[in-house]
């Protein structure tokens, strides 16, 4: 009982968020626009969590996560359309293919450091983009439109366009699973090793970590998570073409995570919420009259947030928490100082 209480208190923020994600879709009624937005928020946050593993925790910036996102999407679409495979199986297959690809490519690429690595990830997704735009098996330049066969209705999760709630909750469940996984990983040996590698390659080696291996583990997990996002995306959007491998798509994952707070499990979801709520607000406010004006204001807002708090929205939260903690610390130090002085106080 005590343990459960502790779980709730320590993660109260997460539970409040979860409650919101459960209640809001019901509260807004049959509002397709809001439901769409929430689904987007969840999908991009989910992929953001994956990106965060390799780029936030492990410190290896990827500008090419669209590659794994796209692989996940294409796998579900191709397997479903051509072989009537259930999306669940398709997503599983997509995860495995993405992880395998991540292993094959990155085992070599991790010899590169910093920006050189980042550009290499971009190169990989651009190469995939070209391949998928000319490969007839996956629809080439026309892309793939997801087929609906009445006799095979159970195939797709998001069947009814007007009522997206079941799909929304499935997406939510998958996001929660990924979130919990990432949080557990952060507090495991893996998470500590990733962060050690991020902070110093040399220290990592000196304390017995094989950086190459742990970076590859991070990338494989990250790719598999991105593939899940891709699988969800294609079921929701019902169409896919090679644009899904573009830098624009990769950058969405980077953006939502960095905006929310890089290296923080809450970062992607907070960033994604802010991103899409602002986006929606802009569109509502300005209507369709001045297309692009919303994006201009949106761009300015991003700049303002970043300039105000370079660590993103979670950085702003941290500031508030830290200020409170500092005050507490000062109060407690005043009392302990007296005793530590007597014992010689070996720390300064």
């Amino acid at each position: 009982m005590v343990k459960i209480n502790k779980l709730f208190i320590e993660n109260s923020f997460a539970f409040v968020l979860l409650a919101l994600f459960i209640i809001v879709p019901l509260a807004v009624g049959e509002n397709a626009d809001i439901h769409n937005i929430i689904i987007y928020i969840l999908i991009y946050a989910l992929v953001g969590e994956g990106w965060n593993l390799i780029s936030g925790f492990t410190g290896q910036t990827s500008f090419g996560h669209a590659a794994y996102f796209g692989i996940g999407a294409y796998t579900v679409a191709v397997m479903g359309n051509k072989y009537d495979v259930v999306p669940w199986v398709g997503m599983l297959a997509g995860m495995l293919i993405a992880a395998a690809l991540a292993f094959l490519i990155n085992y070599q690429l991790f010899r590169l450091k910093g920006h050189y690595f980042a550009i290499a990830t971009l190169a990989v997704s651009e190469i995939l983009r070209t391949i998928f735009s000319v490969w007839p098996y996956v629809g080439g330049g026309d892309g793939i439109k997801i087929l609906f066969r009445p006799e095979n209705k159970a195939l797709w999760l998001a069947i009814d366009v007007r009522n997206r709630l079941p799909f929304l909750y499935i997406t939510l469940a998958l996001f929660v699973a990924v979130f919990v996984l990432c949080k557990m990983l952060e507090n495991s040996k893996m998470g500590y090793y990733w962060k050690a590698i991020r902070e110093s390659h040399e220290v990592a080696e000196a304390i017995g970590i094989n950086p190459q291996n742990y970076k590859v583990y991070a990338m494989m997990l990250s790719a598999a998570i991105a593939a899940v996002g891709g699988g969800l995306y294609v079921q929701f959007f019902k169409y896919i073409d090679s644009y899904v491998f573009s830098l624009d798509v990769s950058m969405i994952f980077v953006l939502v995570t960095v905006l929310g707070g890089i290296g923080n499990v809450y970062g992607p979801i907070i960033g994604s919420i802010i991103y899409y709520v602002l986006d929606l607000a802009m569109r509502r406010l300005l209507g369709g009259t001045a297309s692009g004006l919303n994006l201009i204001i949106f761009g300015i807002l991003i700049i303002v947030v970043v300039v105000y708090q370079p660590k993103g929205i979670m950085g702003i939260f941290d500031d508030i928490v830290n200020r409170r903690r500092l005050r507490k610390l000062k109060a407690s130090q005043a009392t302990t100082n007296a005793s530590s002085n007597q014992t010689g106080g070996d720390s300064k």
């Binding site: 507090n187 495991s188 040996k189 500590y192 090793y193 050690a196 991020r198 902070e199 000196a206 017995g208």
Partner: peptide
């Protein structure tokens, strides 16, 4: 250890030491 100290700067002191301690255990 390193002559030019390489503290894992975005990790707490305890986390710094735990990173080392994981060499012989998998349990946090």
């Amino acid at each position: 250890t390193f002559q030019i100290v390489k503290t894992l700067s975005e990790m707490t002191v305890e986390q710094n030491v735990m990173a080392g301690a994981f060499l012989h255990t998998n349990r946090t």
